[in-house]
Design a protein around this nucleic acid. Structure first.
Length: 83
DNA sequence: CGTATGACGTGCA
DNA sequence: GTGCACGCCATAC
């Protein structure tokens, strides 16, 4: 796994439960603020269960994609946020 | 090695 | 406020 991907996954793991971070914020967190595109690509191809990638959303607050694991990103996030 | 694609973001109409 | 087009980085083919 590339270091970049590792950083992305780590950043995602650092996201507190009940909260969300935008792809751009994650990119900035790993030191590559302009790689938010790559962040999305990495997360898309690396569906790691150890990573709460469902907490990573778009900057405007939209859920974005999240396809692989459940497909119920909305409900999952909602449950975490409300709790 | 070069081209195309994607869970995006920002700007302009 | 919504929609379209361009730009960005890394990965896949």
């Amino acid at each position: 796994m590339s270091e970049f991907a590792k950083k992305v996954l780590t950043a995602a793991k650092r996201i507190p439960r009940g909260q969300t971070r935008s792809y751009k914020e994650v990119a900035v967190a790993i030191g590559q603020s302009r790689a938010y595109r790559a962040v999305a690509s990495v997360l898309a191809k690396n569906i790691d269960k150890t990573v709460p990638c469902h907490r990573v959303i778009k900057s405007d607050g939209s859920l974005g994609g999240y396809n692989g694991l459940r497909g119920e990103k909305e409900e999952l996030l909602r449950r975490e946020k409300i709790s």
